[in-house]
Design a protein around this nucleic acid. Structure first.
Length: 317
DNA sequence: CGACTTTGACCGGCGC
DNA sequence: GCGCCGGTCAAAGTCG
């Protein structure tokens, strides 16, 4: 191996050398994302209704950290959502597939034209991830000299369905695949995506006790769009947060509340969300749109407030 | 040398 | 039952 073998990666990973060097961009400029996501799969996954409200954004990190409290999200959605649309099979499709992690929602009737940024997805909040427990219980010892072909598989109880962590999917307009979100990730897999020339990458949070995963893929119809799907809840604060101002350095516009304040902060944060910002799917899900880091440079300077005030609040007159 | 990426193989779920 | 496909594993390679 010589690294850099995957052309499909290189093509759009400008300047992305490993992780942690990328800033997550966002912008308040609604015009940038004037076109709907193109990948039909993704459209469905994120419940794209072509009617999202581009004026309402929150930063990637905010969303992510908000995801540390699904209850909060749910609460927020309860407050802000009136209908049950989530996924928008809309165009007669019903070709729901892999990206529609959100299992269903409730029928996910098509969103109304103004129903906004619909959410993407979340899945049943599995208490115990059987998948993970499989790994945990799986005799790791099988590694020593053991070939993969003899990999021990944990006997799964019959009828025990694999449950997944809740997921959030974000769409991001970016040339960069692996967006800086304040956490450290280790890539553990990459797969070709059906019907797409772009591969899907699988990442796992490097924190030992944290089992959060994320998938990153690129829309095949709009290569500038990256779809990031988070699965699980971080059990630890963002390393960036711990490092103090690092997060701010990486992404000055991204709020990185202290761990202890995350919950309350996001509760407030979602409470303040415009009702068009997110729609309730199943319990909670987000669909974030953001912009390239280039565009972020055009943001007005809020000084210290940049790190305090959520962007979607900031932008308001 | 440790952390991380790459990559082919394996596994399980699901549709037919 | 079979095949497809998404997700994961883990050895090997790369990088700093």
């Amino acid at each position: 191996m010589s690294g850099n073998k995957d052309p499909s990666r290189q093509d759009y990973s400008h300047g992305n050398h490993g992780m942690g060097a990328i800033r997550f961009p966002f912008s308040n400029n609604p015009s940038i994302y004037s076109q709907p996501p193109c990948n039909p799969e993704i459209d469905q996954a994120i419940g794209n209704s072509h009617g999202y409200d581009p004026t309402s954004y929150m930063s990637f990190t905010e969303c992510l950290q908000a995801s540390t409290g699904y209850g909060v999200l749910s609460k927020a959605f309860d407050l802000s959502c009136s209908s049950s649309e989530v996924l928008a099979p809309g165009d007669g499709g019903g070709t729901a597939n892999e990206l529609v992690e959100s299992s269903t929602g409730h029928g996910g009737n098509s969103a109304t034209p103004n129903s906004s940024v619909s959410s993407s997805s979340t899945e049943a909040v599995g208490e115990e991830d059987s998948e993970r427990s499989k790994k945990d219980q799986q005799p790791k010892g099988c590694g020593d000299g053991m070939e993969r072909s003899k990999k021990v598989t944990k006997p799964r109880k019959k009828g025990e369905k694999r449950q997944r962590e809740p997921r959030f999917a974000f769409m991001t307009k970016s040339e960069i695949d692996n967006l800086e979100d304040g956490y450290r990730w280790r890539k553990y897999g990459q797969k070709a995506v059906k019907n797409s020339p772009y591969p899907r990458s699988y990442y796992r949070c490097t924190s030992q006790k944290c089992s959060v995963k994320k998938r990153v893929e690129r829309s095949f119809q709009d290569p500038t769009t990256v779809i990031t799907t988070y699965e699980g809840v971080h059990t630890h604060p963002s390393p960036a947060t711990l490092r103090g101002s690092t997060a701010s350095m990486l992404a000055p516009s991204i709020l990185t509340p202290t761990p202890s304040s995350v919950t309350n902060f996001h509760q407030d944060l979602f409470m303040q969300m415009p009702s068009t910002n997110f729609h309730q799917g199943d319990p909670s899900s987000l669909y974030l749109q953001s912009l390239s880091h280039n565009q972020r440079l055009q943001l007005p300077d809020y000084g210290l407030l940049q790190d305090v005030i959520p962007p979607f609040i900031r932008k308001q007159p």
